[in-house]
Amino acid sequence: MDSLVVRGLTRTPWWRDLDLELEGGEVAVLRGPSGSGKTLLLRALADLDPVDAGEVSLDGRSREATPPPVWRRAVRYAQQGAPCLPGTVEENVAAVAALLNVPPTPVPALDPRADASRLSGGEAQRLALHRALLGAPRVLLLDEVTAALDRPAAAEAESRVQAFAREGGSVLWVSHDAALAERLGAREMSL
């Protein structure tokens, strides 16, 4: 059964009448030139940006009928640039876990007491992916979440995302990495 269904999504001048289906357990990689509206599409699907027209639904339930916090807990967006909240790594996880009403879990390979504002780009991305996976969302919208990671760390992040998909989650992953779709065995889409 289709998990995330998009019909006729339009946001001029970026995209018009866009249709998209993501099944449970499916990973899709979205590619396209800079400025083609990839980030905007993820933001629109997470209901962080408005669209001109179109409908989005999850498991047959329309987004308009779902309160925004409930929608965003289920359709989880990990932002480009991996921003952090003030405080330590541990506090970042705790703040998000509290919002989701789930117990916080440690971030693999990160010092929980490190100041989140001083993390390297790669460390911040690890934290961002960890936060995005908290509370078992149905769909992950990933925006360049491994761009600053070295190969082994990126591979670890990819395997976390694949594990999420094996448990039935759907993933739409924006990336400039030409080999990502092949490595993940994922469908490739372009804008």
Binding site: A46, L48, P68, P69, V70, R72, R73, R76, Y77, A78, Q79, G81, P83, C84, L85, P86, A95, V96, L99, L100, R131, A132, L134, G135
Partner: peptide, 20 residues
């Protein structure tokens, strides 16, 4: 904006995200 939207994206209500 990035931090406010980080909270929104993880299920915060408008008030929770705006509180800081």
């Amino acid at each position: 904006r990035a931090r406010v939207e980080l909270l929104l994206a993880h299920g915060a209500t408008r008030r929770q995200a705006a509180a800081p």
